[in-house]
Design a protein around this nucleic acid. Structure first.
Lengths: 140, 140
DNA sequence: CTTTGACTTAAAGTCGACTTGAACTTGTAG
DNA sequence: CTACAAGTTCAAGTCGACTTTAAGTCAAAG
């Protein structure tokens, strides 16, 4: 629970390499920490930040998106409109993603029960559905 | 619904570039199609395959995984044990992913309701949780 | 005092998933 | 016959997210 963590400590907590943490600093995901004899010393707030970053990545956000969504409003001291729009879009995107994961799970399970043309069938279904969706959603 | 599709037709259906489709063939995701004057002509089965590929990608599978999971058993004519294990793992992984998406959505919503230290709070929560999970799950 | 191990920087390398570019062929339209 | 659009191959380039390498600094241990 101590502050004054060396970069390797922080790395260990998150299962990252030290190079990753320096990289995050370089691209503005982590603020430059205090130095002691030229070496970085982190406090807890950095850990909290990294925890959010890691989860967001697991949720499919890019580092650029993460900076904007979570730490972006630092710079401009609240441009709340743009941020609200952005996060609204992201929330919807997450919803869509979850729907797709569910579908994928279903497909895998069907294939396990080895009705062995499941793949073709599923391709057919997906294909007929996707035409409707395509207008609505722009993911990736 | 016609067969005999040119590569550009297939590309248009899926919003891909023709180069992507050639690339999929090259890495064994799509089988080499019939040629007509040296040009690729696709039938419906290719569309079904691509539909599955695209969904799987959206679900976070790599192309290597997709080949293994969905088209891999072609080569060995059913090694069902290994496949079953693999897909079992993947199904669990999808479950975990969905849980995380839900969490992320919650975090975003909390930040919208602008209890403005939500980020720090959430970092704290994530951090205390993740120690338990870390042993259990190896994602990415 | 030297060795060890952890740290520093800047620049170059890697990996997956494509894209782009250069050089060439082919069928159709004017 | 020529022009054009769409296809072909192969090699090289790109992008995000890091990692690796080379060369150097620094403090504690032997």
């Amino acid at each position: 629970m101590a502050d004054n963590l060396a970069i390797s400590d922080v790395a260990r907590v998150f299962g990252l390499r030290t190079s990753a943490i320096r990289y995050y600093e370089q691209i503005g995901i982590l603020p430059p920490p205090v130095r002691k004899n030229g070496q970085r010393r982190y406090e807890q707030s950095a850990l909290f930040r990294l925890a959010v970053v890691q989860r967001a990545q697991e949720s499919g956000f890019t580092l650029d998106e993460i900076r904007e969504l979570f730490f972006g409003f630092r710079a401009a001291t609240r441009p709340p409109k743009r941020w609200h729009e952005l996060s609204e879009r992201k929330i919807a995107e997450l919803q869509l993603r979850m729907k797709r994961l569910k579908l994928m799970q279903t497909l895998l399970k069907q294939m396990q029960d080895c009705r062995c043309n499941a793949l073709e069938d599923c391709g057919k279904k997906l294909l007929s559905k996707s035409s409707k969706e395509r207008n609505h959603a722009h993911l990736r």
